[in-house]
Design a protein around this nucleic acid. Sequence first.
DNA 1: TTCTTAACCTGGAGGC
DNA 2: TGCCTCCAGGTTAAGA
Length: 274
Amino acid sequence: MPELPEVEIIRQYLDEQLPGRTIACADILLTRQLKYPEPEAFQSLVAGKRMKGMRRRGKYLLLDLQDGSTIVFHLRMTGSLVYDPSGNQRDAYARMVFHLAGGGALVFADVRTFGCVYGFAAGEEIAVSGLQSLGPEPLSEAFTPAYLAQAIRGRKQPIKSFLLDQRRIAGLGNIYADESLFLAGIHPRREAGSLTQAECKKLAAAIQHVLRDGLADGGTTFRNYRNGEGGYGRHQEHLCVYHRAGKPCPTCGRPIEKITVGGRGTHFCPYCQH
DNA sequence: TTCTTAACCTGGAGGC
DNA sequence: TGCCTCCAGGTTAAGA
């Protein structure tokens, strides 16, 4: 399940490989995942276009083309975006294949088909509601303890649910939200608005710490995450609570518990988090 | 306005 | 071995 570190690692690799290359044509193997425009219009939009670079915003990837048009990807839970230099690899779950002039392909694959792709022509507004309403990047200067304190003010929802709200913080997902709360010593069911200034400072620092660790480890792979080369991350080996129910807490040694918060599986230490 | 819940979807795990 | 049920989870729309 790609979150900010995983999406950023994909972006970095593809941004090295794709600029200057030209899309010969696009095969749309599952039209349901192409949200805009219609398949024929999308194919016309990308065919023969030279790629300029890959950007990231939250969990969205934006592939800019030289003519000013943009392809937007969201990998959701099981999506991947992989550059295949040979262009010959066969992925059973490939949903869209961009064949490149001179060989090679950019393959959008997705097991559970929740991911989505959009294409916008030059000058056209990038009308993706989730993308337009994203909160600040947690590793940017805009994300500070003061921002966090202001954003949670008066909120009664659990802090875990708050952290997963992309309108408040862009890019956090279930894994890094659980890890951040553990590092900050905050119980995931705490009312968001009940956090003190000191806890906001601790939580903001924890969020940045776990995201940077995830980036340094090449991301977290549980089932389907693959980086832009088709390889796997290593951060799952360093997680403190996520996916560790029943295993000892790295701080106190007592068992990690798993509960449901806001409909999401949530892992925490009931002794270290308050 | 804020928060919660269901739905989308399919592979894999576990139970029988 | 095969079948069935449940779980996983990011986002959004609908409902409370």
